[in-house]
Nucleic acid binder design. Sequence first.
RNA 1: CGGGGCGUGGCUCAGCCUGGUAGAGCGCUCGGUUCGGGACCGAGAGGUCGUAGGUUCAAAUCCUAUCGCCCCGACCA
Length: 594
Amino acid sequence: MRWSQYFIPTLREDPTDAEVVSHRLLLRAGLIRQLGAGIYSYLPLAQRSILKISDIIREEMNAIGGQEFYLPAIHPAELWQESGRWSGMGDNMFRLKDRKGGDYCLGMTHEEVFADIARKHLNSYRQLPQVWYQIQTKFRDEPRPKSGLLRVRQFTMKDAYTFDIDYAGLDISFEEQRRAYCRIYDRCGLEYVIVEADSGSMGGTASNEFMVYTDAGEDMVASCPKCGYAANTEKARSRMNGIDDGSTDQAVEKFPTPGVRTIEDLVTFPGGAAADRQIKTLVYVSVGEKGDETKSTPVLALLRGDHPLNEVKLSNALAKLINKDGWRQTAVRPAHPEEIFDILGAHAGSLGAAGVTNLTVIADEALRGRRNMTTGANEDDHHLRGVSIERDIEVKEWVDIRTVAEGEGCPKCDGLLRVAKALEVGHIFKLGTKYSDSMGARVLTAEGKEVPIVMGSYGIGVERILAASIELHNDEAGIIFPITIAPFQVIVTPLNMKDADLKSTADRIYDELTRAGVEALYDDRDERAGVKLNDADLVGIPFQMRIGQKKLKEGKVEFYTRATRQSEDVAADAAMELALQRIQQATRKLNYAE
RNA sequence: CGGGGCGUGGCUCAGCCUGGUAGAGCGCUCGGUUCGGGACCGAGAGGUCGUAGGUUCAAAUCCUAUCGCCCCGACCA
C-alpha cells in the first residue's frame, strides 16, 4: 500500500475533545472520526486492525467448535417482550416504529434471537451441545457516551451462545469459552485479568469479566496479590477486623445534635462516635412493575458509618424481595428528600432504623452483632446512642451491600486487597435457563423428558480490544501496536523521495516484502524526513525500514523497532529477510504465549 | 436527567466583556530554495461566525429560544 494514495489523515495537533489516551491517538493517528456522540467512523487503518482482531476471535471460536451466524440488527418488539427485557432494558434500547406502527428495536445483544432459533430447531439432546456465535454490530443508547471508542452507542461485538442439556454441560462449555478468551487476548497482545462479576440485567448464575487495568476504565476491580482472588467491586467481598463495642449492652439514649448532618460531623461532635461505631441509614426506592402496574417500595439500607454502599449489590438484594407474584424490579434509586421526610419524619442527617417497623430494613453483613452504636433518631437534630442492632432494629435481610476498599482483608486468604480501575473487554455468563424458560426453548432428554436448554452467553467488545491495546501500548510519540493487530506489519520509509537511489532501493524492498506476503506500507510521500518519521511513530506500525543516504552509501538500511525505538543496520539486500524473521518471531511470541 | 463549558475557513484558536464591513498559526494550491525528527521565501484559494427569532441606524459581539458537542455527576449488558 502506498501512503500517498492511502487515506491516513494524521493530525499535527492534539484534538481538544479527546481526554483519554486511546481517544486522542485514534484521532491523531487517523484511525477514526466522530459522526455523532458515541458514533464513530472507522477509517482504513482502524478497519484493518479491527478485521485482524475479528480474525483472531473467529479462529479461536471455530477452534472450540463455534459456528458463525449473522443475525439481524433490527428485532421485532415481541421477541423482547417475551423475555421481559423490552421494559427491562429501559432507555438504553434504541426503539423504532415501522410504517405500520409496529414496534422494533436495534439489538443490544442477541440472547432472544438465538433462543428463538434454538426453540424452533433444537428438539433433542442428540443435537446438543451447540456453540453459536456471530460478530455483529450492537446498538445501545448510552446515557453518556465518552472516551472515544471506550463507551459508544454503536459498536461491534462478538457474541457467542452455548446450548447444553444440563448444568454439567454448561460448565464444560463455559470452561471452553473461557480458555478461548484467554487465547484471544493473548494473541492480541493484551494484558488482562479474569474477575468474578455481577451478572447484571443478563441474569444467570455465574459470570466472569475479562478486565484490562487502565485508568480509562469505568469499573473497579479488587484483587489479592497473594492468592490471585480478583472480583469486580460490584461483587467483591472482604474480611473485616472486629471492632470493640464494649463489653456491656447499654440502654438506648436520645441526645441532641444540633447542626450535625453527616457521619463526619458526628465524629467530631462532643459525645458523638467514631465512624466505625455509627450506623449509616440510607433510604432507597425499589421500583417494580407487573404488566401495566408499577409500584415503589421504600427500603432502609444500613451500613457501618465509614462504609460506602454498593448500589449493584443493593439492587440485587432488593430484586430477590420484589421479584415475586409476577412483580419485577425495574429500577432502584435513592429516595428524594421529600419522600424521606414523609417516610421517616426527619431529614437526611438524622435518620435511623431503630424502632422502624413499617419498612423493609436491609443491613450490611458487617453490622452483624454490633452493639452500642450511634445513629439518627428520626427527629431532626437528634441522634441515638447505645443502639444494639439485633436488639433494637428489626432487620429483614442481612446482605453484603457495601463496597470493599483498598487494604481490607482478602476473603480467600490472609492477604490484603488492592482496588484499581479497569476496563471490561469481555464478559462470559452462565445464563442457565432464564431465556429458555421465558421463551420456551426445550428439548427431550434420552429418557424422553422435556427439559429447558441450559444456555451460556459470551461477549467481546471488538473495538474495546483496539482501544484498550492503545491505552496500554503507547508512548509520547504515539501508538505501539502489537504485531498481531497492527494495521500493517512494517513501513518502508525512504527519507527523501527526490533521491533516485533511495527511491529505487525503497521500491525494491517494498516489492520484496509484498511478494514475501508481508503487510507493508510504503511511505512514498514527498515529505520531509521529520514528517514521515513522526507519522510512522504516531501510527504505531511495529517495524520501520528506514532508507537514508548515509547508510545506503555503505549498502545498508536501518531496521527500526517501534516498541524500543532502536535501530539496527542491515545490508539492503538482506533487509527483507530480517523484516520477515522479526515479524514471524513477534507473531509467534503472541500466538503461542503461555 | 442535574451541574459546568464550548460552537468563528479543513485543523487549533483569537476577536465577544466595552456593537461599527472577520483575524492568526497550521493545512491546502502555484513558483522557488531546502531535505535524517513536523523547514523557509513569495503569491493565492477558502468563512451564511451552529440555527431561528428579537433589540439596534448597525450584531460574531447584547437578549430569547433551539440544536449539537465535550467534561463532572446520575446511570450503565
